[in-house]
Amino acid sequence: MSTAHSARLPDAAAPDRGERAAGARLRRGGLRFGRRLQLVGAAFVLPALLFFLAFKFGPMLWAMELSLSAYDMVSAPRFVGLENYAKLAEDPVFRASLINTFVYIAGSTALITLAGLALALAINTAVPGARHCMTAMFLTNLMPIIAVTLVWRFLLHPFGLVNQLLQPFGVGRVDWLTDENLAMPAIIAVTAWRFAPYFMVVFLAGLLAIPKDYYEAAEIDGAGVVRRFVHVTLPLLMPTLFFVVVVSALLASRIFLMPYIMTGGGPGDATRVLSMLIYETGFSYLKMGEAAAISVVLFAIMLVFTVLQMQIFMRSERAHLR
């Protein structure tokens, strides 16, 4: 039918015939090439998508549903509306854990960012031996977290190595992990020790991407080290800086093992973070509904950081394209 129709077309339209023939060849089973391409792509993505649906989004949605139920893991879940959230609002342990989580996120993110940047700058500005140290420093990231945490527990013991090293400076016994005012800072410091070298590599990549010309121009203009850092390095490193802040904050919001092993959430509730509370509420007290409600709160916190991260990425991408 289409052939008959094209036979009636004027000669000027003749070149279109070839295109239509090609289009017909590209159509198979009535689908355009583009559509077929999309379907093939979708077929490739489908297994991964199904996997995520089944094992990630499914449980996430189920957790949200559970947060509106009373569920002891044995009897069938019973819908209770927002009761679990109301209970959380009244629970001093939840409030303490929420505050601890924010303190931990803020403290560890700040320390990781500062330490990571300082290490990257040291390596980038050719401090003697710094590059050799880089590999050694990165090892902190490769060690199993349980081993690292246990070693730090002994180092921070009242009579451990840290206090022994401080003794010559007139510092008396410090109960790093058993004083409620010091336990959280101690865990934050250990977190920074572990993760700062990882982000150092990210910073280093950002620093190496800054063209040397800018520094040379600034130097010709008489800018010193500090001015070069403030007016050249920092602005051009801003996307990397944002990335490190957001990713380390996301990492910190999920922390569990360090406080669990080092202090068990104590002394009292001084180092109990939301992820620990979720575990205790769900698996120790068999209150899965409440545990799900806490996890939804934690999810909301992480969502804020994720949206922030995506915004920064998109802005940085747009700037790059311009």
């Binding site: 058993t178 004083d179 409620e180 104590g266 002394p267 009292g268 205790e280 120790s284």
Partner: peptide, 19 residues
């Protein structure tokens, strides 16, 4: 509510003894 009781007593003892 044994687990809740035990955890609360444990945390209380920590607060009293350590802090």
């Amino acid at each position: 509510v044994y687990n809740e009781l035990a955890d609360q007593v444990h945390r209380g003892v920590q607060r009293i003894l350590l802090n």
